[in-house]
Design a binder for these strands. Structure first.
Lengths: 241, 241
DNA sequence: CTAACATTTTTCCAACTGGTCAAAATTCTG
DNA sequence: CAGAATTTTGACCAGTTGGAAAAATGTTAG
């Protein structure tokens, strides 16, 4: 359908308005950025939500602003009014994400009992894979591409946290409370096994088939992983359940 | 540097050649496609190699033909002479990949001893992560995007193979040779833990740091995973080593 | 109400995208 | 070597991309 807009091509005798700003606000002469308006907060949230959807599915380069704008239900220039560049949106998503992402590990308590702590950690991670699969995929996408926009955070924040928790694990091992294993690879294997259920969800569901691929798969996975990390595959005779 | 090509802009008095074919060959009037020439085989390999590099890093949508052509060291139209569409290249890579990808699991022998068989499977998978990280990432990229171009193969070939091997594992469990675990999630966890070292390589290296992030990380991983799948984290008293 | 600011839309653009085409260059093959 | 077939190239194209500019429309404090 052609746009058929007439666009006031006729004579316009109304008093000419002074060209009003038209630029972006976000700061007056004083230099201090003024607080976001209600609309700004709302729209930014809508955009970030839409961007998460698109970025997590196609990666940074594969995602387009038009696509994000469409999912967000607004025009591209309107979107660009809130985030002047594509990278900006992505950066915001990623840095927001990393905080959420580290939380479960952060909660692992050095003063708790090792097995319940580790089991809880696995559960929390698995719940995140279930409840925030897009965030997981966004993260995975970034990793696959060599983490160009996130590498410093990985090398500093993430590494520091893992170093700290590795020491916790080592202490538990020294006390003979858990088997002596490489704590770094232990953490890697928890990440890998849990995030797998978000990142490779299609595969998991396809392989499990309709019968077992339903929502129950997360409970099955939780139970399996618990057993794996506790006992591995060595059969233990005389075990109830 | 500007190309400075003169390109014979002068008068050309040479006898005008009849416009010769110029089209693509790949079949004559008989309809049967003739075998590939040496150049065709070579160039296709170069292109596929370059495409693997680019697709594995940016995913299908994020990769561009120009990029692939540049990595392959040829012009875009030249590349398109061998693969008339972008999708064609990707499809070839993916279907090639899946064969390689399934091989390690295929080798798991129902008549072998469970633990050596499983351990070998883990090792082979880990070696693939080490030696073919781009293939792993290509696969992961496809999965993250919902496997649009591969889903049927997953649902048929992959599922059938996993079903078959799940039965093997179940038989071993029935014989009491390994602990009773969900065989599907067992396979998932082997995939996840091993592929992690290819797909999240940046993260792994960043977290391990320069000291432990070298090539030795794969040996460490292999040893750790062996222990994990064998015994889990339960400490076992009186164990040599 | 209205001026000042905030938001949205329209229009536009240059670079890039996947892909075509014919001519030119090169490589077989007898 | 000639002629045919194959391979490579340069010019080009239409659609998409990220983004700029400015005009049009809303909103709100005084």
């Amino acid at each position: 359908m052609p746009p058929t807009k007439v666009k006031s091509a006729e004579i316009d005798t109304s008093p000419k308005r002074q060209p009003r700003s038209g630029g972006k606000p976000k700061g007056d002469a004083t230099g201090k950025p003024r607080p976001l308006t209600r609309i700004q907060r709302e729209k930014q949230d809508i955009i970030l939500e839409a961007a998460l959807e698109v970025f997590s599915l196609h990666g940074f380069r594969g995602a387009t602003i038009d696509q994000i704008a469409e999912v967000a239900g607004m025009s591209k220039p309107n979107l660009l009014y809130y985030f002047p560049r594509k990278e900006e949106i992505h950066r915001r998503l990623i840095s927001q994400l990393l905080v959420t992402w580290l939380a479960p590990l952060q909660e692992m308590d050095a003063n708790g009992d090792p097995f319940p702590e580790i089991r809880s950690y696995i559960r929390r991670k698995l719940e995140m894979a279930r409840d925030f699969p897009r965030e997981s995929r966004l993260f995975a996408n970034e990793m696959l591409q060599g983490a160009p926009r996130i590498i410093e955070m990985i090398e500093v924040d993430l590494k520091n946290l893992v170093d700290e928790k590795a020491r916790v694990l080592l202490a538990w091992m020294d006390q003979g409370k858990i088997a002596r294993r490489d704590p770094y690879h232990l953490i890697f294997s928890i990440w890998a096994t849990t995030q797998h259920y978000a990142d490779f969800d299609v595969q998991v569901r396809a392989v499990l088939g309709p019968a077992r691929g339903g929502e129950g798969r997360f409970e099955d996975a939780a139970h399996y992983l618990e057993q794996l990390f506790l006992y591995g595959l060595t059969p233990r005779p005389n075990l109830k359940s």
